[in-house]
Amino acid sequence: DTINITLPDGKTLTLTVTPEFTVKELAEEIARRLGLSPEDIKDTHNGKTLDPSLTLAEYGITPGSTITLEIK
């Protein structure tokens, strides 16, 4: 299953994830792909900052969802 990550420059990154991924694991994968530190990444969905300890499923993030990435 894939989700879309909207980057600060407007580009989109597509990642393969499972509903059990935590937001922290997602940030780590994004950081790895972009050459950043996971601590520099802030993920938001529907205007809410995502708690790193919760899973994508707990936020109702499903395949095809879009998450907005902010760099701290």
Results as ranks from 00 to 15, higher is better:
residue 1 D to E: 07
residue 1 D to F: 15
residue 1 D to H: 11
residue 2 T to H: 10
residue 2 T to E: 07
residue 3 I to W: 01
residue 3 I to C: 02
residue 4 N to K: 10
residue 5 I to T: 01
residue 5 I to M: 03
residue 6 T to I: 15
residue 8 P to Y: 05
residue 8 P to S: 11
residue 10 G to V: 01
residue 11 K to I: 11
residue 11 K to A: 10
residue 11 K to L: 13
residue 12 T to V: 11
residue 12 T to I: 11
residue 13 L to D: 02
residue 14 T to Y: 08
residue 14 T to W: 06
residue 14 T to R: 10
residue 14 T to S: 09
residue 16 T to K: 12
residue 17 V to Y: 14
residue 18 T to F: 08
residue 19 P to A: 07
residue 19 P to Q: 05
residue 19 P to F: 05
residue 20 E to I: 08
residue 20 E to N: 11
residue 21 F to P: 00
residue 22 T to V: 01
residue 24 K to E: 03
residue 24 K to H: 07
residue 24 K to N: 05
residue 26 L to M: 07
residue 26 L to G: 00
residue 26 L to D: 00
residue 28 E to R: 06
residue 28 E to N: 08
residue 29 E to P: 00
residue 30 I to C: 06
residue 32 R to N: 09
residue 33 R to E: 08
residue 35 G to Y: 03
residue 35 G to V: 02
residue 35 G to A: 05
residue 36 L to Y: 09
residue 36 L to T: 12
residue 36 L to R: 10
residue 36 L to H: 08
residue 37 S to N: 13
residue 39 E to K: 14
residue 40 D to T: 12
residue 41 I to A: 03
residue 42 K to R: 13
residue 43 D to G: 15
residue 43 D to I: 15
residue 43 D to E: 15
residue 44 T to V: 13
residue 44 T to H: 13
residue 44 T to E: 09
residue 44 T to G: 11
residue 44 T to L: 14
residue 45 H to D: 07
residue 46 N to D: 09
residue 47 G to N: 07
residue 48 K to N: 10
residue 49 T to R: 11
residue 49 T to F: 12
residue 51 D to Q: 04
residue 52 P to H: 12
residue 52 P to M: 14
residue 52 P to L: 13
residue 53 S to I: 04
residue 55 T to R: 06
residue 55 T to S: 06
residue 56 L to Q: 00
residue 57 A to L: 14
residue 57 A to T: 09
residue 57 A to K: 11
residue 58 E to K: 02
residue 58 E to I: 02
residue 59 Y to S: 14
residue 59 Y to E: 08
residue 60 G to S: 02
residue 61 I to H: 01
residue 62 T to C: 13
residue 63 P to F: 04
residue 63 P to A: 10
residue 64 G to I: 01
residue 65 S to V: 10
residue 66 T to D: 04
residue 66 T to C: 13
residue 66 T to A: 03
residue 66 T to H: 06
residue 68 T to R: 14
residue 69 L to H: 01
residue 70 E to L: 08
residue 70 E to I: 11
residue 71 I to A: 06
residue 71 I to Q: 05
